[in-house]
């Protein structure tokens, strides 16, 4: 995980229009966070992206609201007032059979804490301080994942076509030779087409590692993939989102994937 400093001056909604401009449906998000500034920062960020964000500062209230109402996503801080551990709330929620995606936030950055957070039933984990763009990208991925679609065999974005079964990729009918890992990277980007994916998300999903990626490994991997994709001419499909990560989308629209 590459934590980066939040910048209060750069308001997320204005700094990263990319994540919000993808045409996703509005979703409801519960922000369980006792620090007023942090909570407002997160909530305002989500509202700026056109979502509904409700702030909740106390553990018991958070559990009550999380279980009583329908949410698309819960952002849960680990340290809550009165020594309440957010993981306790998470475990209680899971015990009640609630499958709402939960993103655990914590000032404890150790890998250990991450493992504990995920074991307790969290779907993702982010260490403080974080960039809102990282949080928004991960939240987006979680919300989309939680809406299960039909078994996806083929993914198409613009003139790019991926057959996940036979692991073949072609663009405009022209086959693209990809190494297995490159195919995984492309498939991950395509399955989240229109979404911004951060470097750490790519490292986690494609390489299955969580260590701090050195320098620009992921960037170079993505550029190589991009070069292969664009070799036959045609506009680039993989877009760099400055300071955040990458997004695969049709050149003009930025639409989601067409799934068959």
């Amino acid at each position: 995980m590459a934590p980066s400093i939040d910048s209060m001056q750069t308001h997320p909604s204005s700094a990263q229009p990319a994540a919000g401009a993808t045409g996703t449906a509005m979703w409801r998000c519960l922000v369980v966070e006792d620090d007023a500034d942090s909570a407002r920062y997160i909530a305002d960020g989500f509202r700026g992206l056109g979502h509904v964000a409700v702030i909740c500062r106390e553990g018991p209230e958070a559990l009550a609201r999380a279980s009583a109402e329908a949410w698309d996503l819960i952002i849960l801080d680990r340290m809550l007032p009165g020594g309440v551990d957010g993981l306790g709330i998470l475990a209680a929620l899971r015990a009640m059979g609630r499958r709402t995606p939960v993103l655990v936030l914590s000032a404890l950055s150790a890998l250990d804490e991450r493992v504990r957070g995920l074991k307790a039933g969290g779907d993702d984990y982010l260490a403080k301080p974080f960039a809102f763009s990282e949080l928004a990208a991960r939240a987006e991925a979680l919300v989309r994942r939680s809406r299960p679609g039909p078994e996806i065999r083929v993914v198409e974005v613009a003139d790019l076509r991926l057959d996940l079964g036979s692991r073949k990729a072609e663009r405009g009918g022209r086959p693209i030779a990809l190494q297995p890992r490159e195919f995984r990277l492309l498939a991950f980007l395509a399955l989240h087409a229109g979404q911004v994916l951060t470097r750490t998300m790519l490292l986690e999903a494609v390489w299955d590692y969580q260590f701090d990626p050195q320098t620009n490994v992921i960037d170079v991997q993505v550029s190589r993939l991009r070069a292969k994709l664009d070799a036959g001419g045609g506009p680039s499909l993989i877009h760099t989102v400055r300071g955040v990560g990458y997004r695969l989308a049709a050149p003009a629209s930025g639409d989601g994937p067409a799934q068959t």
């Binding site: 934590p3 400093i5 950055s109 150790a110 250990d112 301080p129 701090d212």
Partner: peptide, 25 residues
Amino acid sequence: IAELEDLNRVFGKLLQIAEAEAGAQ
């Protein structure tokens, strides 16, 4: 922003080193 993110990376790295040296993992 870029410089502060860089600084934060330094802090993160120092904390990781301290964590490894503490041996709790």
